[in-house]
């Protein structure tokens, strides 16, 4: 497998060196810059950008916004040492994810992985999930015991893929409905529940005890990888 390339912009030498080493050890090719001035140049060759908010010269928000303009499909993860009250919203408006310092290295790695998967860079990968194999790029779901394809309806597939793209995260009913149907969720609507039930009947071994798609009572659903 080709190493995923990460553009990492951080001015603190200590943290920068350490994160670069940690991510490299996890199998990523890390390009570390200490300022955002030449970020656009390197962005083309990157699959993901990790961006610190406080940078000398151009600050992280400006750099990030510029990058989003030139390369809208490049996921950006913001690292901030600022306080949450201050600029959480401003940072999240363009960034795909947001992590406050002092972040945990495992947390960073997990977020990077999720972001890469969401942006399809990990698409070629075939995912093994319980008894099924999922080919994300080809939108194929195969029962690995028999090798047969499990046929899903369009909405079922969309729901499942959305859950997979945001694996390990709890997605609320609102989030899923609005992402799949593209219209505002009306509280109390049972459509999603019905679709999930049908989806489970197809992919779960025992639909009454679902293991692939987990229900978080009152909140939403989650697919754990």
């Amino acid at each position: 497998m080709l190493n995923k390339r990460i553009l990492y912009i951080e001015d603190d030498a200590d943290i920068g060196a350490w994160v670069k080493e940690d991510l490299s050890r996890r199998g990523y090719a890390v390009n570390w810059l200490t300022s955002g001035d030449r970020a656009a140049q390197y962005a083309e060759a990157a699959d993901l950008v990790i961006l610190d908010v406080m940078l000398p010269g151009l600050d992280g928000f400006t750099v990030g916004q510029r990058l989003k303009k030139t390369a809208p499909h490049l996921p950006i993860l913001m690292l901030s040492a600022r306080t949450a009250v201050d600029d959480k919203l401003q940072g999240l408006q363009f960034a795909d994810d947001y992590l406050t310092k002092p972040f945990h290295p495992d947390e960073l790695a997990a977020r990077v992985e999720v972001l890469l998967r969401r942006y399809g860079s990990a698409a070629s990968q075939a995912l093994q999930l319980g008894h099924i194999t999922v080919d994300i790029g080809g939108n194929l779901i195969i029962d690995s015991r028999s090798g047969e394809e499990i046929a899903l309806t369009g909405k079922q597939l969309q729901i499942f893929m959305y859950l997979l793209k945001h694996a390990n995260r709890i997605l609320t009913k609102e989030q899923i409905y609005e992402a799949v149907w593209g219209e505002p969720y009306i509280e109390g609507d049972k459509t999603l529940n019905v679709h999930i039930r049908h989806l489970r009947e197809k992919i779960e071994l025992d639909p009454s005890v679902p293991v692939l798609i987990e229900t978080i009572r009152g909140i939403g659903y989650r697919v754990k990888l």
Binding site: D12, D14, I15, W18, D22, A81, T100, K101, P102, F103
Partner: peptide, 11 residues
Amino acid sequence: LRTPLTSIRSH
């Protein structure tokens, strides 16, 4: 304050 904390955590 947070930058050194990040450093400490990573180490």
